[in-house]
């Protein structure tokens, strides 16, 4: 029942809901998010991060790879200069401007997070859709495989996969991290598809004579996608953290000149944490803030899409 006391005296033949109408569920969800402070904070952080990643090379005051202050660094004697004019965050162990590296690092970090998530979503969705749509032994086989992946703690799984590669680099990190998220998406999709299979509107489409594959793609899949989007934003956050962990453990790209937050964190923590600890803190804080931003965004999206909140 329409619960608001409306002040208009509606003429009797106006049907309930006779507004200009045409607002889809997605549009309503976005409206709801626009009113939530959590969503706004998450969206702002995420947007800043993305913009930073895109425009970083233009924003960086110095060349992140130029070892301009190298002569000032004497690791053997435990000296790394701190903040100096023109170098507000100081320099790293190779004399490179840390601020510039931090800014440019956003690019690489975002890349890792996005690509790893996309791969996880893609593979997970294929498995989940096949399992959910076909059922039977297809479902059984695929889900047992997924169960195996899930039975290993995520970080351990990532480490195991990364360690398999003889030449660790950025891509091995991405693959390792994406494999961790595959079972999550597979289960999510399969669960949603199973629920959709018995849904009345799917039966209705079938009884209308709509072809099987159309029913799956047009009715079952789109209604299963909501939770996937939410999970994807959360997975983005955890992917970044896991990639950082792999770099920290030395399983990532060995080239220390690459500007990527996880790598920078790992490098600093392993080699000169006692000399200049801020060089580890800055990338750590950056990772935390970005992960937080994505998480807030994802959580508020989940709330917005929750049918119980619909009035």
């Amino acid at each position: 029942m329409n619960t608001l006391l409306n002040k208009k005296k509606e003429p009797i033949d106006k049907l309930a809901g006779a507004s200009a109408g045409g607002r889809s569920l997605a549009a309503e969800a976005i409206r709801r998010m626009a009113r939530s402070p959590v969503a706004i904070v998450g969206a702002v952080i995420t947007a800043l991060f993305v913009l930073l990643a895109i425009f970083a090379p233009l924003l960086a005051p110095k060349d992140p790879f130029a070892r301009t202050m190298q002569d000032k660094v004497e690791l053997g004697r435990g000296i790394i200069p701190g903040p100096m004019p023109g170098y507000p965050l100081g320099v790293d162990d190779f004399g490179r401007d840390f601020l510039s590296r931090l800014l440019v690092g956003a690019q690489q970090t975002l890349l890792v997070g996005v690509v790893a998530t996309l791969i996880g979503v893609a593979i997970g969705m294929i498995i989940g859709v096949l399992a959910g749509a076909f059922g039977g032994w297809v479902d059984t086989v695929l889900m047992r495989f997924v169960d195996v992946l899930l039975s290993v703690p995520s970080l351990l799984l990532a480490i195991s996969v990364a360690a398999l590669f003889a030449n660790p680099n950025q891509w091995t990190v991405i693959i390792a991290v994406s494999i961790v998220s595959v079972p999550i998406f597979a289960r999510l999709l399969r669960g949603a598809m199973l629920a959709q299979r018995d849904a009345d509107h799917v039966l209705a489409a079938t009884s209308l004579g709509v072809k099987r594959h159309t029913v799956v793609l047009r009715h079952m899949l789109p209604n299963s996608v909501g939770p996937v989007i939410v999970q994807a934003t959360l997975t983005l956050a955890t992917s970044i953290i896991e990639a950082a962990a792999l770099s920290f453990l030395g399983l990532g790209d060995p080239d220390p000149s690459r500007a990527e937050w996880g790598l920078m964190l790992g490098n600093a923590a392993q080699h000169f944490l006692d000399i200049r600890p801020e060089l580890a803190y800055y990338p750590a804080i950056a990772i935390i803030i970005v992960a937080l931003g994505f998480t807030l965004l994802g959580e508020s999206m989940r709330e917005a899409l929750d049918p119980k909140n619909r009035r």
Partner: peptide, 20 residues
């Protein structure tokens, strides 16, 4: 009864059942 339960007017403005 024509209309539905949501076709009502607030009691301040008159009888809530009036539209139907």
């Amino acid at each position: 009864i024509r209309g539905s339960v949501s076709d009502n007017i607030p009691w301040e403005d008159g009888c809530a059942f009036a539209p139907r």
